[in-house]
Amino acid sequence: METLSSVRRPVRELRPGDHAWLAYSGEDEQRYVVGSFVRDGLDASHKVIYLAGSDDVDVPGMNGTPPRSGLLTVVPLEEARRPDGGFDPGTVLEALACEIAGAEGGDFGTIRVTADMTWTLDLPDGLTQLLRCERHIEQAVCPSTRVTAICQIDRRRLTADARTALAASHSTVVTPNPEFADSVLQIVRTFEPVGLSLLGELDASRHMVLDQALNTVLTASRGEEIHLDLAGLGFIDLGALNMLADVAARRSGTGPLVLDSMPVQLRTIMETVGWHMLPGLRLGTV
């Protein structure tokens, strides 16, 4: 989506040496992806270095339990504040590099680093500053056999040029972990629009996982339209269509269930069976 040149990889598949970026659409997506990254790291006793606005930040992925001492380090941006109120990227990066170096000296197998870099865009000549920061991080991460990094950027702040430049400075685009994945079906949450992306084939063998994923999205939604991206869906059975219609009926009064990018073979089925049999389902973007 953001780029053709970068590799897209779910957050759980990031490996040491990966310098990935996350262009999040809002706080939900940001906390969902970064939360996975932090939680998986702490669970595996990886060192997690988290660059934040201040040191009392609500780190995503903590589930309310404090991590084992020394595993998580929060590097507060606050300390890099200059007397004029701006931030000095050099100071921030120095602090970050210092933490990485310190961790490499420790006995951690893997070091996970993540930072929301959107603040650099507020500096004079923001994009240049951001790319300068990225080069520093790239130099710290890529030669390493132990460091994995995710740079988070608010997608809404990016121009097309900025996207291109960021794509060029990262090897990997990080995506959410799938809600479900096996050799036949993959279900991934989407955040803009809110919904799910379905890939593969969906039938009664996997109705349960669809139900769970739908519930997850419904619970997290705020009554907006729910979109299902079907571009990669090769098959859907009548039972799953019924489940979708049931969800739409339960949500009557709020936004409809919108089916985006429906492949032509699925449209043939919908038209043969009749859309009127499945009220509440709407065809979205083609």
Partner: peptide, 20 residues
């Protein structure tokens, strides 16, 4: 016979099979 449109636990399986 065509079932009433879903909106509850509408089972339209065999009816749809006949359409297909």
């Amino acid at each position: 016979i065509p079932p009433k449109p879903a909106g509850g636990a509408g089972r339209f399986g065999l009816w749809a099979v006949r359409l297909l």
